[in-house]
């Protein structure tokens, strides 16, 4: 029983971690606390619907379509909303992202209708049986792909020149422009990556259930994940996501589904009291 909970918690947590990582990438680059992250995740699911059902693309092209679509969406959001309205205080920027998520929801409902859709992608759907533990292949796929994406991002972030410039820009805006970094490009890239990571999470969530704007509520679990892990911290986002997944499964399994929220949000409050920079974040937050 326990091993089952841990396994499914880690699988779901990997998806949360992926979405949370996208959130952190955006936050680090542009200091925007993005409440639309859950909706960006939903957009990923609907990109999949467009590619697979409406355009009838084969699976590899569907993946490419989702990634390109999410990348373009992220870049468009950056240049149309964040850049022109940027440099404002945290609160107006939060309002902007809330407005963005409402608009995205309305646009999706207009195009695809309010009713949930069914999308079947050719992902493994069987079951591995290991002793008395039964493991869904879809869960395994979701976890493995999430971890690959996270690994890929960390290698990019730590080892590539673009990653270096991204870290430098996150460190200080003025220093970045005075070093000749084209900050707009870096920030747009951060939004593109953040949206792509969310979109991949959305594709897996819509395979676990239906394609619906209501998936946003699940995507928003990325927010407690990043606050617990540390807003600025890349490993914090990933581990925070895993933690939220585990807490969700264990609390629902051993106590009650309602207990889930208590066990996610009480630690969140505790963290904010004791260690506001998060479990894995650094004390010195923001720009110096």
């Amino acid at each position: 029983m326990l091993s089952q909970f841990i396994f499914s918690g880690l699988a779901l947590g990997s998806i949360y971690g992926l979405v949370a990582l996208g959130f952190t990438v955006i936050y680090k680059a542009t200091q925007v606390f993005n409440f639309a992250q859950g909706m960006l995740m939903v957009c990923g699911a609907y990109f999949a619907v467009t590619a697979s059902i409406h355009l009838g693309l084969p699976f590899p092209l569907t993946i490419a379509f989702i990634l390109v679509g999410a990348g373009i969406l992220g870049i468009a959001i950056y240049f149309l909303l964040i850049k022109p309205l940027g440099g404002q205080a945290l609160l107006p920027m939060i309002m902007i992202t809330i407005a963005l998520s409402i608009i995205l929801r309305a646009v999706i409902e207009l195009i695809y209708g309010g009713a949930p859709l069914t999308l079947r992608l050719p992902l493994p759907s069987g079951v591995f049986v290991l002793g008395d533990v039964r493991i869904s292949q879809l869960h395994v796929t979701a976890a493995v792909v999430s971890w690959l994406c996270m690994l890929l991002f960390i290698v990019f972030f730590r080892r590539s020149r673009a990653g270096l410039l991204m870290r430098a820009t996150a460190d200080g805006y003025e220093a970045a422009v005075l070093s000749g970094i084209r900050v707009d490009r870096i920030n747009a890239a951060a939004w593109a990556i953040g949206t792509m990571l969310a979109a991949i999470g959305g594709v897996f969530l819509c395979q676990l259930q239906l394609v619906s704007v209501e998936l946003e509520n699940i995507g928003l679990l990325a927010l407690p994940a990043v606050v617990i892990g540390g807003l600025q911290s890349v490993p914090g986002a990933i581990l925070g996501g895993l933690l939220v997944g585990l807490i969700e499964q264990l609390a629902s399994g051993y106590i009650s589904p309602k207990a889930r929220d208590i066990f996610i949000y009480v630690p969140l409050l505790l963290i904010l009291f004791i260690r506001p920079w998060g479990l894995f974040g650094q004390k010195e937050l923001g720009r110096v």
Binding site: A170, D171, G172, E174, A175
Partner: peptide, 8 residues
């Protein structure tokens, strides 16, 4: 104020 990248 130098403005080096402190976390790099």
């Amino acid at each position: 104020g130098r403005l080096v990248f402190k976390n790099l």
